[in-house]
Design a protein around this nucleic acid. Structure first.
Lengths: 224, 224
DNA sequence: CATTCATCTGAAGAACATCTGAAGATATTG
DNA sequence: CAATATCTTCAGATGTTCTTCAGATGAATG
């Protein structure tokens, strides 16, 4: 499950993209949307996304300036989607560190595939899909987790948590983000469940359980 | 120095791209060219490139089939550059595992920047900006703080304060501003807490604690 | 130089976040 | 439908972080 932030002021386009991305293949993308630059920037800053889709002309803060700000602290993949097709604008986009610049109007399936390709590329998943860390590895292809040469049988939640952590090695993931990503948005789950699953996961991983670090007030991360 | 393989049958376009890529900034790209599908595939197979630029319609073997073959054994970034702009073709390209699909005609600088962005992305080189000051650094991406080659574990408040200061190097930040930014607006916190956290932060940073300067009556700043 | 105001410091307990064990609820499997 | 596995809830234990306070130190002012 990948998380996308869409910043677009046109409600029609926003809904079109949202529904296409979330419906096409169930459970692949989760799209969070913002209608103006200010909101967009805040969301991007406060949460972890796998891809940002930014319109350029926005009320409040334009897409370019959002990109500029984000790039100061993050290398999240960024695609502009905009009607501004001048060479100058496109080059400006790339100068600010975007990954792709898509000119409206475009066929939705194309945007979808571009997003797909870029996310995979950013995660180094084009070929190998196995996450490893020391003697710990997780293979999303067959759902196998191996710790110290030993296959570990994890429950769905434990697996979900470990996967998110491994996809974001070294990065602190907030409890909220973890709940969103493993349980799904507004599932309204009690935040304390996470504690329990983290504990079980640590125990299940044996020695490697130590790799999961709690960062008080900020969340969890996995690190050697 | 990055190596690019260009497979394109039109000699004019080939030379145009070649010269633009190699001249623009000396020594950034090295472009190897092939004029037909057969040659292109052989070169791609026998050498290592950082990016493949493939035309689709080619004598011998078309770009799509080259891509299909390459993807069986390699995750090298691939961009199609072609006049075939139908949605069907574009989707086909992505289905075969390309990273971008550029429709002719296109401005050369745009192609150049696209290539640039893609290569960086593929190598994980899209740098996130880390705040540094001498031997002190803070990475907002993973929340790590390093002082004198040593990771420092800061509490949430300490981290928040340091981040604000580093975001405003050399600038004096008033106590009120700091409270607003770290604690949140109208949190009504006693202003004296800040003193304590500043002290703890200084201690935690060791030698680099000295960088945090008190500016009497005006606040704090960080400066070398 | 004395006075006033601002900041620093150390210590202590309040407040908070996370962990843990156990038990009940829910889902899955044979 | 029973048996089992998994998930969630809860409440007390634990450990960490935050805040408060009061006296010490240091800087500015007239």
């Amino acid at each position: 499950m990948y998380r996308i932030l869409l910043v677009e002021d046109d409600q029609d386009i926003r809904e079109l993209i949202c529904s296409y991305f979330t419906r096409k293949e169930q459970g692949v993308f989760e799209v969070d949307a913002a209608a103006d630059g200010q909101k967009g920037w805040e969301k991007a800053y406060e949460n972890h996304y796998d891809l940002l889709l930014l319109d350029v002309m926005l009320p409040g803060q334009d897409g370019f300036s959002i990109c500029r700000e984000i790039r100061k602290s993050s290398d999240v993949p960024i695609m502009f989607i905009t009607a501004r097709a001048s060479e100058r604008d496109i080059l400006n986009g790339y100068a600010l560190g975007c990954d792709d610049y898509v000119v409206k109007p475009f066929p939705l399936p194309v945007l979808y595939q571009k997003a797909n390709a870029l996310i995979k590329r950013s995660k180094g998943l084009v070929r190998s899909k196995i996450f490893t860390m020391g003697s710990l590895s997780l293979n999303p292809n067959n759902g196998m987790v191996v710790s110290d040469e030993q296959e570990v049988k994890l429950t769905a939640r434990e697996y979900g948590i470990l996967k998110v952590l491994l996809e974001n090695k070294g990065r602190v993931i907030s409890r909220e983000q973890l709940l969103d990503m493993v349980w799904g948005y507004n599932s309204g789950t009690d935040e304390r469940v996470l504690d329990t699953h983290i504990r079980n996961l640590r125990k299940a991983l044996g020695t490697n359980g130590k790799l999961i670090r709690t960062v008080i007030r900020r969340g969890y991360k996995i690190e050697e």
